[in-house]
Design a protein around this nucleic acid. Structure first.
Lengths: 153, 153
DNA sequence: TTAATTACTACTAAAATAGTAGTATTAATA
DNA sequence: TATTAATACTACTATTTTAGTAGTAATTAA
């Protein structure tokens, strides 16, 4: 049970778009540089996000990407579900793939678990995620300042 | 994000052991037949479960496996964590693998999500899982009985 | 017309998954 | 003690998935 690089990169990509929300489109190239992820790979990742209506794009010179909605109105469940695609076990989406579904207890648990995962991811918006990031960055800076002061004396 | 066959099979394997708890060891062969899973593959899956102390084994003729604890005292978190092994993202267990950890907000969310998953799986014991199975099976039988009665008239 | 961007398609190396196969070890029993 | 039947262990493998790379086409601002 792992989160794929695809989904992790997608979340970071969306976080950058969220931080730049309201300032017009930005280049994938700049996101790739900022997050140190292959631009070509991001180019693949952003296509389904655009397809799902989370991102708007403009082509040509001075093109780029921007969020289609406010950062507070996009949550991680949408992003991860679009990029991971599959569910925990195939028989959830497609009960016909297994003859045991009508009596299978473990399937019930995978459904419960899938629901909890969706619920958890759905409870976090891009806006909140960037808030957490800002807080962590500020804290990290304070700690480093203290360290530098300590090493001086 | 998928549950591996390894973990799914492991849960079903443990459910069979739980249903036979108190009746001495049972053969992997019989579990394999009952659940329609390769015996050899189950043989690989059960090794770490035994290593973790969830299962006891006896070798030789009339050998077999049995739960080491009561079904109510074994939960799915243990089973799945043993068989899946990895966590959601590598940087949770091993922060040194990524330079971004000190400021990374998405990592915080993966940690949160991992906690929810553990919590959910930890809340279900083998005993409860088999209770669900019994209930589903009974319900399924009642439905089939109704269907048969309906097709008669 | 050119330069810079997104859009799309095809390909690929590496890793993980889901097994199979065979042998060694152990223990009950005839 | 030989046989039989079980677990224990190791090695191998085909398939699928992952995580990209590469190149070209389409689009648009300047």
């Amino acid at each position: 049970m792992k989160i794929s690089a695809r989904a992790r990169y997608g979340v970071r990509l969306m976080m950058v778009l969220a931080r730049n929300y309201g300032n017009g489109p930005i280049y994938l190239k700049d996101i790739a540089r900022e997050e140190d992820i292959s631009e070509k790979y991001l180019g693949q990742i952003i296509i389904p996000l655009r397809g799902a209506g989370l991102v708007l794009s403009s082509r040509g010179s001075h093109g780029g990407y921007m969020l289609a909605r406010e950062p507070a109105e996009i949550n991680l469940r949408e992003i991860v579900e679009i990029l991971e695609g599959d569910c925990l076990v195939r028989c959830i989406k497609d009960p016909s793939t297994c003859s045991r579904v009508s009596t299978c207890a473990s399937r019930d648990i995978w459904i419960l678990l899938g629901g909890k995962i969706s619920e958890t991811l759905g409870s976090v918006s891009l806006a909140e995620l960037n808030d957490i990031g800002r807080e962590k960055t500020a804290k990290h800076r304070r700690l480093n300042a203290v360290k530098r002061a300590g090493s001086k004396g």
